[in-house]
Design a protein around this nucleic acid. Structure first.
Length: 592
DNA sequence: CCCCCCCC
């Protein structure tokens, strides 16, 4: 069996050689915990040497998931590149392989391979890897050695892997898929002004960002479409500024006057964008600022609004949408710019996001970045699965939202349901920012004394006024006197659910909703009709409500206490309430 | 030649 393996192939590759279709055994494999992209590192053996320098190209991840690639299996490497990384270490990336024998069939390590160490290798002094003289030692990746005969483009030139591009060669053509494309952006600074866009290209060896300015934007912006494959040649290459680019490439390209781009119709061989989707439910546990991939159904969407940035005063268009998945969880996602403006959610599309950022404003939310990409109704298995789920009952499921604030105005009672006990257990309100949650609660006790106050009648003031006892009422805030006032409510009530109770402050709108009467009417009633005044409070007591609460630690006179304020109060809708309980029971049943 | 990633 041992003679199946290509003895010495590992040494040959490490020394810069490109043996033809070498056969190796995978001794072990390890998933590397880096970023969102699943990557596998392999300990491989050629029968003589072993090394853990091998990595699987991500398009082969499926073969790991399916079990085709597993420990002890024998592989033939059809295509591979060997790069030099920091400290002159070698990394072998397997681009294409054939499993000759499964791990189960082989069942054991073949022979007695020794960990390859160039200093211990006794056969001849270490061969000098054929390293081009231009390579600075700090450069993280050398020109890869690409095995197997390169493909040819339609016009006959050979295709180069993206990973092999450097600023020092100018005759190359890549065949790559556009995985992301920016909006047109303009700039104006001391050096001048102009417009630009950028795209991201992906092939089986790697990825690279390309930028087109001014004339090149006019020439290529419309032509380049996300998900299509192109032959691209003659661009300027420069060192990528890692501060701004998250792509796994030390270089990036700029389109220039010589650049040629040509659509490639037969594009099956070029990998599509790789996602690593996180179930929406898991976003609830994700760290703030985490960059993740998400797929979901757009269940609801709000209108486009305009905001002004604090820093530069720039106006931005944004749209919030709610996406759900089969973890029965909903999250709010913010779209920006053209994506926000052109978005059509009316058909409840499936949306696959790559590289969106987790935020923690009022619960968890997601936001697209300029580096994020979005595919609507993509032809991938996760999208088909979600479509099937949504159309077959998923659309009826009551979702748990991990974003407290619904829509631009934050209206609505929200869906971040918790009991009082859960809110306490989770220490809501003890951080810097207030927490919001929604509770179903009954009124136990209302403090009707001092729940009304005389307020300034001018618009948007509402400050308490002082009765001058001469028919005039003075507002200190407006610094003037009025001949009338408005009754306003600040009602303190004890509310309870099955788990605990809580004192909650209800201001005007919320108190009116709870009592079922306008503050003005209640105020008039207090002196004129005390019986009915008391009846209002008696009637409200023991009623059930759904309410969105805000919890925040407040400090008075060096004493800190949690303050709970009602943000929205609605009468309990028994149908919606029961639906939610049924969903929760089903979820509990699934968990057990 | 850009390099902002935003707002409640």
């Amino acid at each position: 069996m041992a003679n199946q393996l290509t003895r010495g192939a590992i040494a040959e590759i490490i020394e810069g050689g490109t043996p033809e279709a070498p056969v190796l055994q995978i001794l072990s494999m390890k998933r590397i915990p880096s970023g969102t992209q699943e990557r596998h590192r392999l300990l491989v053996s050629d029968g003589q040497w072993s090394s853990s320098f091998a990595m699987l190209a991500t398009q082969l991840n499926g073969k790991v998931a399916s079990g085709e690639i597993s420990q002890n299996c024998i592989i033939q490497m059809n295509r591979f590149v060997c790069n030099t990384v920091q400290d002159n270490k070698k990394v072998l990336i397997i681009l294409d392989l054939t499993v000759l024998q499964t791990g189960a069939d082989v069942g054991q390590r073949i022979g007695d391979p020794q960990p390859f160490d160039i200093t211990k290798k006794n056969a001849a002094p270490p061969a000098q890897p054929s390293k081009p003289a231009y390579q600075a030692p700090s450069v993280q990746r050398n020109t890869p050695n690409v095995a197997a005969s390169p493909a040819r483009s339609q016009s006959g030139q050979s295709i180069h892997p993206i990973a092999s591009l450097t600023p020092y060669q100018n005759k190359w053509t890549i065949r790559a898929r556009v995985t992301n494309k920016s909006d047109v952006r303009t700039w104006s600074n001391s050096k001048g002004e102009g417009k630009l866009f950028s795209v991201e290209f992906l092939d089986e060896s790697g990825e690279i960002r390309a930028t087109g300015f001014n004339q090149e934007l006019d020439k290529f912006f419309d032509m380049l479409e996300v998900n299509k494959v192109y032959y691209v040649s003659s661009c300027s290459l420069k060192t990528a500024n890692k501060q701004y680019s998250k792509l796994n490439n030390d270089y990036e390209m700029t389109f220039n006057k010589m650049t040629e781009i040509e659509l490639c119709e037969e594009d099956d061989a070029v990998p599509t964008m790789q996602f690593s989707f996180l179930p929406i439910k898991e976003v609830g546990n994700a760290d703030k600022d985490a960059i993740i991939d998400i797929i979901g159904v757009c269940k609801e969407f709000q209108d486009v609004t305009t905001i002004t940035t604090k820093a530069t005063g720039r106006e931005l268009r944004k749209r919030e949408i709610q996406i759900v998945d089969d973890s029965n969880t909903e999250v709010t996602m913010t779209l920006w710019g053209t994506t926000a403006e052109t978005f059509d959610g009316s058909q409840q599309p499936i949306m696959a996001f790559k590289g969106v950022r987790v935020g923690d404003f009022n619960g968890k939310n997601l936001s697209m970045l300029n580096s994020s990409s979005l595919q609507i109704n993509p032809d991938i298995k996760e999208a088909h699965h979600l479509k099937g789920w949504f159309d077959n009952g998923g659309n009826q499921v009551e979702m748990t939202s991990i974003s407290n604030q619904r829509g631009a105005g934050g209206m609505g009672v929200g869906t971040n349901f918790k009991t009082f006990a859960e809110a306490k257990l989770e220490n809501l309100g003890t951080k810097d920012a207030p927490d919001y949650y929604t509770v179903k609660a009954s009124v136990v006790l209302l403090r009707k004394e001092n729940c009304l106050y005389t307020a300034c009648p001018s618009d948007n003031c509402n400050k308490k006024v002082i009765d001058m006892n001469n028919g005039l009422f003075r507002c200190e805030k407006c610094n003037r006197e009025y001949d009338s006032f408005n009754w306003r409510l600040m009602l303190s009530g004890n509310l309870a659910d099955a788990t605990d109770n809580n004192w909650v402050t209800c201001f005007q709108d919320q108190a009116e909703a709870l009592l079922g009467i306008k503050a003005q009417d209640l105020g008039s009633m207090r002196e004129a009709d005390p019986d009915n005044f008391n009846k209002v409070f008696n009637d409200a007591t023991f009623k059930d409500f759904t309410m969105k609460l805000r919890v925040k630690m407040e400090t008075y006179n060096d004493e800190s206490r949690l303050k709970t304020t009602a943000v929205v109060i609605e009468p309990l809708d028994p149908v919606t309430y029961n639906k939610r309980l049924i969903t929760e029971i089903k979820q509990m049943a699934q968990l057990s």
